[in-house]
Design a binder for these strands. Structure first.
Length: 131
RNA sequence: GCGGUUGCGCGUUCCGCCGCCGGCACCUCGGUGCUGGAGGAAAGUCCGGACAACGCAGAGCGCCAGGCUUUGGAAACAAAGGCCGGGGUAACCCGGCAGAAAGUGCCACAGAAAAGAACCGACCGCAAGGUCAAGGGUGAAAACGUGAGGUAAGAGCUCACGCGCUCCGAUGGUGACAUCGGUUUGGGGUAAACCUCCUGGGUUGCAAGGCCGUGUAUACCGGGGCAGCGUUGCUCGCGCGUUCCCGGGGGGUAGGCCGCUCAGAUAAAUGGUGGAAAUGCCACAAGGCAUACAGAAUCUGGCUUACAGCGCAACCAUUUUU
RNA sequence: CGGGGUGUAGCGCAGUCCGGUUAGCGUACACGUCUGGGGGGCGUGUGGUCGGAGGUUCGAAUCCUCUCACCCCGA
């Protein structure tokens, strides 16, 4: 998974399983957006502040490793370039949180489409976080 | 010029901006600078090797792989050559290679018979019976082919020529083998059926294996200790022993480091965007579209599979001109 | 990254080791029949590139090689 500067990426079997098991989710094309519920009695004490991002691309959908690499890099680049748009919400968090983007379509989308979908998804996450 | 065959090689390049991973050096401790950063198949994991753990006196059985020759190689395998079969006008390409006369098995249907065969048939004979394997039909496959002699009829029964096999000799070649001569013989197929012979392989694999840390119930073994019980009424001694402590042992839990590499990974870094150039296709033009197959995970030698295009060399066929 | 397995009617499976006669069974589907009707029983029938491509063989679902899917196991 991508190691973004200053923001550790989401890694380790335990972390992934926790988000998939306990977290909430919604769907915004082309992603299934899974995120960790922030205030769980302060159990995540070792976690650094900010967003930890995980990207999941199914081997079932894309058989070739080249295709999975391409999609993952496009998603990560889109996240990096548009990060300023949800910076306020990110800094409002007291503790860190984890997000997993599950790429849920069978087509390899170009960068513009991925960027559009990612921004919509992130802004939607910001709204659910601060009502 | 056009088309083709073979062997090699390349398989996009450059610049601007914003970024990623590793290493090194500074230092205000998370910034700055320097530097390295996917392939010919990295792939499939089909064979090898290194390396690691375990096993091992020596040998055998079993299993797996290979099987013409020479050379290279640790082995897989490769290159050149030989023979056989197939494709192409040609250059050339593709496939195969010990043993079926050591033995066992199988050969459906059809057919008399599928391996030491006899139904129809031919001949002798009144008949019983006997001799024979030419011709017939079946089948994927039927017991050397053609001609002549021979015979009751026939048959490699004999002869000539041809084909194949065994052995011997000569010449050429390192050799497989080729050519020629002689000799013996004429009894299918299948070993990607069992098998025989020769050669190679101990087994399991980096999730191997080692170190550190975390740390809970305790089958079992050894040592120590309090109380207790037994051994004679008591003491010593000896034995037993719930529980406690220490060590061994097996079972279970989340993680880090080494192995692990001047690419070197905790779920895994090489990207995004803009502009030129090159090549191909389309178009009168402006211009437009496309640039393959595909992404390292201990390293390495092969094999196989995928692959848009382009360049070079040799050769073949065809057309035109000289 | 290493081991290992499975592809056969719409669905679930035999057959593959040891090649040959018709690729079989259950279920589903269609028709007939038993019943006043449903359910169920009985009978008949339809339905197969044996995952794909080469090879060995007279002959391949079966043997050999390559390839494509899917599924297990191993910190």
């Amino acid at each position: 998974m991508p190691s973004l500067k200053g923001q550790p990426s989401l890694r380790g079997h335990g972390a992934f399983d926790k988000v998939f098991g306990e977290g909430k989710s919604f769907f915004q094309f082309p992603f299934q957006f899974r995120y960790e519920v922030p205030d769980t009695q302060g159990t995540s004490k070792e976690v650094l502040p900010g967003i930890r991002l995980g990207i999941s691309i199914s081997k079932r959908r894309f058989k070739r490793a080249v295709d999975r690499n391409l999609i993952r890099r496009r998603v990560r680049e889109a996240f990096r370039l548009n990060r300023h748009r949800w910076e306020e919400a990110e800094q409002a968090l007291q503790t860190g949180t984890a997000i997993i983007l599950v790429y849920s379509t069978n087509e390899i989308l170009d960068f513009e489409r991925i960027q559009e979908g990612l921004c919509k998804a992130m802004l939607r996450w910001c709204r659910t976080n601060q009502p």
